[in-house]
Design a protein around this nucleic acid. Structure first.
Lengths: 193, 193
DNA sequence: CTTGAATCTTGTCAATGGCAAGATAGGGTG
DNA sequence: CACCCTATCTTGCCATTGACAAGATTCAAG
């Protein structure tokens, strides 16, 4: 929040402030653990102010998901189709942008068919498919490889976030993921790193 | 519900009835889309009746998660350590017991440290680790293999349930999973089935 | 300066989770 | 059989919530 809350009638950037509050609250109690009114109080505005920008609670979560997919696509594209790097970028995004991620793959929380959702979703899907294409030369297998790699990255991220992996408490997720991938790609030799 | 709701003061099996109602409602609107009072209405009891059996909403979700992990452990153990079959059992469980699964890996919804939770959780973890042990002869790699296989199965299940896989609409998840696994284990030949 | 539109507030309503106090039933003990 | 005692369920209540309606304030365009 760059500018101090000036207590003016017009907030100035309420939309962004509420989204940030939603992200912060989601990080603390999950995407269904907070109330719109609570976010409004944190932002120092009346309980009905958010409705003007998002319509309803679902609208706010839709905005969070849309922003999440845009950031997600950026992160995947930055890995430039390098299969392993894309997978690691996937996992890194889930952990670094946990609040976004926790909303994105819970379609019952928002309006997946919203206009604002499609472009970023498609960009992300394309980045994933491209990296799997680079992994397997056989076009027949690209589909299966995409699903396999996507499932691994997604599952690792979800398990880590849910605290199911014993290492979740202390370790470094990217280091662990890299070592696991190393074993996968090196079936007979020893795991590197 | 074997017995007809007799409209007696004592319900007879309210605990089970409420859990079943929670599972049904979760299947329709997710684990946070229903209210305790709604479940009570469905069961034909007063709005405060469930509290006696579960304490609060979190208590009910804890009961659902505990039951889920018990069924989950049963399903994994039935696959008898056959690595691929355990993975498929994992995915099949997630889809056949979707409502349980959606609660189990969302720790913020229930009390993971509850006494009723531990035994089943440990059984499930043991079944997973055993199958990974069978997969790799090298004990150094069992840990990495466990995480890799677990991540894949979990990610596939989550993506399928969230509707993220294009095939989610119509196809058969087990068939798809089997074919993807086929490709993974057969890097140079052709995918069987 | 005026006017219209965007933004925010205040007030209200039904629904919710949780608690407290009371009603009912069923089982065990004498 | 009479009694009580405890588990079970009900009724009543309160603060909080999401959603909506109506009004207030500010800003910007002309």
């Amino acid at each position: 929040m760059g500018r101090i809350a000036q207590r003016t009638y017009h907030h100035g950037d309420l939309r962004r402030t509420i989204i940030d509050a939603a992200l912060a609250a989601t990080g603390e109690v999950g995407p269904t653990g907070w109330s719109l009114r609570e976010l409004a109080r944190r932002a120092g505005v009346s309980h009905a102010a958010p409705a003007h920008h998002f319509g309803d609670k679902t609208g706010l979560l839709t905005a969070v998901a849309a922003e999440g997919f845009a950031l997600f696509a950026d992160a995947l594209e930055a890995a430039a189709g390098e299969p392993v790097e894309v997978g690691l970028a996937y996992i890194r995004f889930a952990i670094d942008h946990r609040s976004h991620f926790e909303v994105m793959f819970r379609p019952e929380l928002y309006r997946m068919d919203d206009e604002s959702m499609r472009p970023a979703r498609e960009r992300a899907a394309a980045a994933l498919a491209a990296s799997a294409g680079a992994l397997s030369p056989d076009p027949e297998r690209v589909r299966a490889t995409t699903i396999a790699a996507w499932s691994f990255a997604h599952g690792f991220a979800e398990l880590w976030l849910s605290g199911s992996l014993p290492e979740s408490a202390d370790g470094d997720p990217e280091f662990l993921a890299r070592s696991v991938i190393g074993v996968l790609f090196d079936r007979d030799g020893e795991a590197d790193r």
